[in-house]
Amino acid sequence: MAAGPANSLRAVRTKLPVLTTNFRPGVSFATFSYLRNYLWHMVWRWVQRKHPQDGSEEDLPPLLRP
């Protein structure tokens, strides 16, 4: 199976019900913030490998920055 954002997101989507069963507001916020940041950087590194000449993180619109 090829590694990429779609496969990573699919793997996370299968684990989300397990993550949300032990819902506690403070803990879940920290967990999902970490997960969001981790996935964003994973996708960003993948994009940089696929398009090495296309700018930097600062060139992104504000809504797409981490």
Rank of each mutant, 00 (worst) to 15 (best):
A3S: 08
T31Y: 08
W46C: 07
P66T: 08
Y38C: 09
L39E: 08
N37E: 15
S56G: 13
G55A: 09
G26H: 02
L39Y: 12
R45T: 05
A11H: 02
V47T: 09
Q53K: 14
Y34Q: 09
W40G: 04
V12M: 13
E58C: 08
L64W: 05
A6Y: 02
V27I: 10
Y34M: 07
Y38Q: 15
V12A: 13
L9H: 12
L39R: 14
T21H: 13
S8L: 13
A6I: 05
P5A: 10
K50G: 02
S8H: 14
V43N: 09
H51A: 14
N7S: 11
T20D: 13
L35R: 00
K50H: 15
Q53Y: 12
L16Q: 00
G4E: 05
R13K: 14
L39T: 02
A30F: 08
E58I: 05
N37C: 08
S28C: 14
F32M: 06
H51D: 09
D54Y: 05
T20Y: 15
N7C: 04
H51V: 01
Q48D: 00
P25Y: 07
K15T: 08
W46K: 02
N22F: 09
N22T: 14
L64R: 11
S8M: 09
M42V: 02
W40D: 06
G26Q: 08
T20K: 07
L19A: 07
L60S: 03
M1Y: 02
Q48M: 01
S56P: 04
T21N: 13
D59Y: 09
A6Q: 07
L19K: 06
P17C: 04
G55E: 06
G26M: 03
